[in-house]
C-alpha cells in the first residue's frame, strides 16, 4: 500500500513538473490563436504601462486563425528567415555527414600516429565556447571572403568536433570482427565504411545530427557576429525583432519556428538521449 501511495505521489509530482515544463509551449500555442483585441487586453499592462498586471487566458475567448494567416500570407520576411534557418541547418548537417562521419570513423577504427593527439585536440576544441574561437573564425572567414554570407556559419559548423566525438563513441562500439569478416571477403575500406560502418553506427550519427539540428535551429552567436545583411538572418535573430505590439504575429511566428524542431525532437528523441549519454561517458 505504502508503495502505491508513494508511487502515486511521485508520479503526481513528476507530472506536475512536467506540465510546468511544457506550459510555455502551451502559452505559445494558445496565444497564437488569440485575437489581437484580446491580446491587447491581456498584455495591455506590459505594452502601455499602468497599474494593472498582465493576464493570460489559456483558452482564448475568441480563437482566430488570423495571426497565422498574417504570418503565412502577409509576411514574406518570415519565410525569408525560415529558409535561411533551413539553409543553415541543412548546410551544417550535410557538412557533418560528410566530414564528421569520416573523421569519426577514421579516429575510431584506425591506428595511426598522431591519433591520440588529434582526438585530444578535438575534445579540447569541443569544449571551447564561441568566445574563444570567435575572433579566429572571423579572421579566416574574412580572408576567405565568406564574411556576411551564409557560408560563414555553415563552414565552421560543418567541422564541429562535437559531432565527431558523438559519432566516434558509436563507431567505437562496433565489433571489429564484423569488419574483419568483410575485409576478408575482399571489401575495400571505403566500402566497409559505407556499407557497414554507417548503418551500424547509425544511432550515433543520428544522435549527432539531432543534437546538431536543435543546436543550429536556435543558434544565435554565430549569426549575430557573422551575418550583417538583414536578409541573411535566421529565424532566431528575426523573431525577437517583432515587437510586442504585434504580439499575435510574434507568437504565431514563434509557434511556427518551434514546430520543425518539435517534430525532429519527436522523431529523434531516443537518438537525442543516446547522444546525450554518449557525450558523457568518456570511456
Amino acid at each position: 500500500m505504502k508503495k502505491t501511495i508513494l508511487r502515486a505521489v511521485t508520479l503526481a509530482l513528476l507530472l506536475l513538473l512536467a506540465l510546468l515544463t511544457i506550459s510555455p509551449l502551451l502559452f505559445l500555442a494558445s496565444g497564437s490563436l488569440t485575437g489581437g483585441g484580446e491580446l491587447s487586453k491581456s498584455l495591455g499592462p506590459i505594452l502601455y504601462g499602468g497599474d494593472d498586471y498582465a493576464g493570460w487566458k489559456l483558452l482564448p475567448l475568441y480563437p482566430t486563425l488570423r495571426h497565422f494567416v498574417e504570418v503565412l500570407l502577409d509576411s514574406p520576411e518570415f519565410f525569408q528567415m525560415f529558409w535561411n534557418t533551413v539553409k543553415l541547418t541543412a548546410g551544417v548537417l550535410a557538412g557533418q555527414i560528410l566530414f564528421a562521419t569520416t573523421s569519426a570513423w577514421g579516429l575510431a577504427r584506425y591506428r595511426f600516429p598522431g591519433r591520440r593527439q588529434v582526438y585530444l585536440l578535438y575534445i579540447i576544441l569541443m569544449m571551447m565556447p564561441f568566445q574563444v574561437t570567435m575572433l579566429s573564425q572571423y579572421l579566416v572567414l574574412d580572408r576567405l571572403g565568406l564574411y556576411d554570407s551564409l557560408w560563414a556559419v555553415i563552414w565552421p559548423g560543418a567541422f564541429s568536433t562535437f559531432s565527431v566525438f558523438l559519432m566516434f563513441r558509436f563507431f567505437e562500439g562496433i565489433p571489429e570482427s564484423i569488419l574483419e569478416a568483410a575485409r576478408i571477403d575482399g571489401a575495400g575500406e571505403f566500402a566497409i565504411f559505407l556499407r557497414l560502418g554507417l548503418p551500424l553506427g547509425a544511432p550515433g550519427i543520428l544522435s549527432a545530427l539531432v543534437l546538431q539540428f536543435l543546436e543550429m535551429w536556435s543558434m544565435i552567436e554565430q549569426p549575430v557576429t557573422f551575418l550583417k545583411t538583414k536578409s541573411l538572418w535566421p529565424l532566431s535573430l528575426y523573431l525577437p525583432e517583432i515587437g510586442l505590439e504585434q504580439a499575435g504575429l510574434a507568437l504565431c511566428a514563434s509557434c511556427l519556428a518551434v514546430l520543425p524542431a518539435l517534430l525532429v525532437f519527436g522523431i529523434g528523441q531516443e537518438y537525442l538521449e543516446q547522444g546525450i549519454m554518449a557525450a558523457a561517458v568518456k570511456e
Partner: peptide
C-alpha cells in the same frame, strides 16, 4: 513524424510562394 516534418516543409514552401506572390 517524419512525414509530418516533410509535410511541414512542403507546407512552408507552398506558403513561401504564396506569400511572395501576394507581396
Amino acid at each position: 513524424l517524419l512525414y509530418g516534418l516533410a509535410l511541414l516543409l512542403a507546407f512552408m514552401l507552398l506558403f513561401t510562394l504564396i506569400a511572395r506572390a501576394a507581396s
